[in-house]
Every structure is written in C-alpha cells, then in structure tokens.
Design a binder for these strands. Structure first.
Lengths: 185, 185
DNA sequence: GGGAGAACTGAAACTATTTTCAGGATACGT
DNA sequence: ACGTATCCTGAAAATAGTTTCAGTTCTCCC
C-alpha cells in the first residue's frame, strides 16, 4: 500500500494551509502541491472534509512527536526560555508551522471536535512549560505562570505573523517576562 | 437615501462572521440575516469583496468609537484591569465581538491591507493600556508591559473562545498579572 | 397623482469547486 | 507471463456560490 503517497498529500495540505490559510484550502491546490491528480484526494480521504480533518490530525500528531524529543542539558530556566522562544524565528518552516497553528486555533472556535484536539496539544505543551517553571523556581505557583506564558506566546505569535512585531522582539519580551515572573533566581 | 439599510447589512455581516467565521461568510447568509435579497448586496457594495471590506472597516470603526467612551473615575490600576478584563464576559454580544476580532487577526496573516488596519486598531488599544500602566506605576517601563498585557489578552481570548478557559479564569489571571508586573503599588 | 430616480427583488447566467466514475497504469502473488 | 487488486488519472457531472439584470416597488418632488 502507498502510505507514502498519503503522507505526501498530508504534507502538501500543511504547506497549502501555511501559504494561503484554511480559506485557501482547495483540492486543486493540494493536488498541485502534492503532484497528484485531484481525483486521488477523495479516493484516499473520502471527501474534502475528510482530507482536511486528516491534515489537521496530522499537524497535531507531528506537534506531539516533536514535543517529546529535544531534551538539552541546560538549566531549567534557560530551557524554559528556549522552549518559549522556539516558536519564533526566521526559518520559513518555523513560520509555516506557526501559521498553521494560528489557523487551527481560529478554526477551533467554530468546531468542537477540533477544539478538543487543539486543547489536547495545548495542554501537553503547557504541561511541559509548567514542569520547567516548577524546576526553575520550586516555590512559585507554576500552573498560572505556565498558563500566562503559553497564552502570551500565542498572542505574540499573532503579532509576529501579522508583521506587528519581529521574532527577535517577541523573544526579548519573553525572556524578560520569564525573569519577571520567576523572580530573580 | 437608505443609509440605514446599509448599516443593517453591515451589522448582519458582523453577526454572520461571529456565528460561522469568515469561511462562512456567504452572500446568501448575509442576505438572510439582514432580511434583504441577495441582489441588494452587490448593488450597495459592488461585489463580495467590497462588502467584506466594508464589514471589516465597520468593525474597526465600531471598536475605535467604543474605545473613546468609557472613562470611569477609578484609580489607574483599577481602570487598567477593567480595560483588559472587558474583553471577557458572558454576554453574547461580547463573545461575538471577540470572535470577530479573532477572525480578523487570523485573516490579517494573509492580507497586508487588513494587517495594516488591524495594526492601527491594536496600536490604539495598546497605547491606551500603556498610558494606564504609566499612570499606575510611573517608574515602570510602560511600553513592554503594555505589549505583554495586550498580547496576553489576545492569547487568553483564543483560549476562552475555544473553551479551554472560562471568562472568569481569564480575568483572574489578568488581575494577577497586572499586580505582578506593576509591582505591589 | 404623475413622473423620475433610487432602492430593491428574484431568477437566470456565470464561475468556482467538489464529487463521481470509467478506465489506464502499476505492483504483486502464483 | 498472467490475473487481479490497488493506485491513480482526467474529464464529466453535480454542487455551491457570485454576479448580472430586467423588472417592480418605493420615495419624494412637482
């Protein structure tokens, strides 16, 4: 079986979403991007909605997989800052991923199922942040700080993607906020 | 002239966007919501894009008008907290407005003109916040704090709209962060 | 109360997009 | 090599959405 073709299609979906948003998600675009015929998409995924759902699930899974790796040995506060700042940068792929997440969050407002999937991913990430906050500052009330920091990243991400802020500015602000909220360890 | 009908149509647009997002923005939906025929929409606004643009401008103007009023006499810190918390609540209209802004922010990623309009609105709001921060805590470096607080509101708004957080939780976190960032006055 | 112009309607024409499908290519076991 | 199941294509049919427009109603000035 050609699971590899399905994979290629799902990756094409991601690129299409990153380039033109969920509103620009056309079968013709995806087919062109993946280098397959339009007819193949319904063949593998049932219909347009099935494809979109599979693509969004795929994004969520990729995120989950990525979160597990990457365990550098620096101290907790540095790891925390690095984790938060890793959402911003100049590489095209990073930006594409951010745009996709932005679209996912916007779409989740109108779709309970997607909101659930999103909440799971968000919660995993926030848990990671909370653990690092805990480690970096054992006395602090880690949960609300983790919530504030992750929500702040999401807010800054919107500013960055719409050109209201550079990646470097977002990172500088985050570093500052981490220090502010964890106390001058 | 029936400027009143155009107004009614623009309000219908807002409701449609709040209910089903920019992706659900159909002439048929808007016409039904406004109680007019489909043909009237192009008649007044040229074409679909003209209508959408007018609707988004209308949202921006409403926001600007709203920002100017409301000058209670409480002390600066209380006014700051109130301003930030006013983005959250249980009234349907408040939620609808938040959803519309959320859609606007998401769309601005793919549309330079809209990003510009959005940046103007955001900047006005952030300026208001900065002034209050300045007033509440004259020693503080107001600009980055205002940026952090407004970005945080946007991030929390996304969590709220997708059901990951209640309005009350968002408000409690904001109140706490204001205290944290402005120091124990 | 009649005429002129603006507001408005509904349906047909048009455009964009998805879905279906008949059949061609490809891989794979025997 | 043959048969067959699966993958895949391209184009036609179906569907969804927008635009146009001929004609109707409304308004308001004379």
């Amino acid at each position: 079986m050609a699971a590899e073709t399905k994979e290629r299609i799902l990756e094409a979906c991601e690129r299409v979403i990153a380039r033109s948003g969920l509103r620009g998600f056309r079968l013709s675009e995806v087919a062109r991007e993946a280098g397959v015929s339009i007819g193949l998409l319904p063949y593998h995924f049932g219909d347009r909605d099935g494809l979109l759902q599979a693509a969004l699930d795929h994004v969520n899974e990729s995120a989950a997989r990525r979160a597990v790796q990457d365990r550098p040995v620096a101290d907790a506060r540095a790891r925390l800052t690095a984790l938060l700042c890793s959402e911003f940068g100049d590489e095209a792929q990073l930006r594409a991923g951010s745009i996709t997440w932005n679209e996912l969050r916007a779409a989740a407002v109108f779709d309970r199922a997607q909101a659930t999937a999103l909440a799971r991913s968000t919660s995993a990430w926030q848990g990671e942040v909370r653990a690092l906050v805990q480690a970096a500052s054992p006395g602090a009330d880690a949960a609300p700080i983790a919530l504030a920091l992750t929500a702040l990243v999401e807010g800054l991400s919107g500013r960055w993607l719409t050109g209201q802020l550079t990646a470097a500015e977002a990172q500088a602000l985050l570093a500052r906020l981490v220090d502010e909220l964890l106390g001058p360890a």
